[in-house]
Nucleic acid binder design. Structure first.
Lengths: 201, 201
DNA sequence: ATCTTTATGGAACATTCATTCCAGAATGCA
DNA sequence: TGCATTCTGGAATGAATGTTCCATAAAGAT
């Protein structure tokens, strides 16, 4: 019928996502997006309507391609402790590939910059938080059973929420620290603490 | 000799700080700063030289007036567990006064927005991180002794670093959640986990 | 009281940004 | 090959930003 797209909508989001991830919404200019995506301004506006919509699409893509697979690791193994270890290894591996200081977690970054002021971002961020807590609860519950832990559900819920929030501190921290080993040590410390807590009466 | 200042330099920083704290550097316009401080643009530029210098002054003020007193709580009591509880109560109390969702921690916010791109901010943020870890180590060591914990220094250092990083997750989280109780539950969970870890052989 | 000196704050400026627009290009169809 | 349709990307636009500048005002010194 007519001229086809030189780059698909998905491909456009894929190229924009790393920029928003690393520099945030405000510090990513439309010029930078044009340069990184290799398409003109008109294409971006006709496809998305504006910078904010493109950002939301990038955030959604991050959830699907990066965050959700990480969350899936938490529930993918019957060994709860191994699952939690795998979750952290996944993100630490991401930072290892990109080099330190790393980009952190796109969602955690949005939590500070945009979520407090943009309802749509807040919704996406909260949805991720809920999913993360729920997945941590699965892993923690499995680990508790394996250890024969006497802890009740209420306490496991409390622990899962703590782990989910604590892990977000790691991604913030990953944006400023140069030594990948510090991320590793965090993971080790967390696993040891969790093990002690579950074994405790 | 000449006309005195209508508002001291410190007072100017004091009024600018909450703006940068809540909205960050990029989203805080010079107009907003002029409105909040009640002085003209000329005064800001003659006193500081620019927006970035004013931001750095605000960050420094935050460290002195908000963060350092919090860190001091960690070393101010011989009871290590009580000290850690006081540290979190201090920040949670801050959020209770301002209403939720809260502003989080100015330094933690800067960690995501500016520190990766501005060396001076990175330096300030890292200095704070070092101080926080050191103070946590003091409190954790005291708590370990009180519990008769068998853990060695290396492990206490690891635990202190974990707690410092985990606590920063809480301040990020505090920017998006409406229920103050969630911050409380984080504190409770953290104290329980720490206690278990220290008691563990 | 006058003069000197310094702060003041609004106006003006240059820059940067997101957005809009349109002439031309590229494809599929007849 | 020629037409119709849709995408393309750079130029134009208008708003907002950080910064500079200067006439004015205010206080201390003499």
């Amino acid at each position: 019928m007519a001229r086809p797209r030189s780059k698909s909508r998905d491909e456009l989001v894929a190229r924009a996502m790393p920029l928003f991830w690393e520099k945030g919404f405000g510090a990513t200019s439309m010029d930078a997006l044009v340069g990184a995506t290799g398409v003109g301004r008109g294409a971006i506006y006709s496809d998305f309507g504006g910078k904010e919509e493109l950002f939301l699409a990038a955030l959604e893509r991050y959830r699907q391609r990066i965050a959700d697979p990480a969350i899936a690791l938490l529930t993918g193994t019957d060994d709860g402790m191994a699952a939690i270890r795998a979750f952290f290894d996944y993100f630490i591996g991401l930072h290892a590939k990109r080099g330190m200081p790393g980009p952190g977690c796109f969602i955690a970054n949005s939590m500070t910059e945009l979520a407090p002021h943009r309802p749509e971002v807040l919704t996406a961020v909260n949805a991720h938080g809920d999913a993360l807590r729920a997945a941590f609860l699965v892993a923690v519950t499995r680990a508790a059973r394996a250890f024969g832990s006497p802890l009740e559900t209420d306490e496991l819920v409390e622990i899962a929420a703590f782990l989910a929030t604590a892990s977000q501190g790691l991604w913030s921290y990953g944006r400023t620290v140069s030594d990948l080993g510090e991320l590793e040590r965090f993971k080790v410390a967390l696993l040891k603490m969790l093990r002690s807590r579950l074994l405790q009466a």
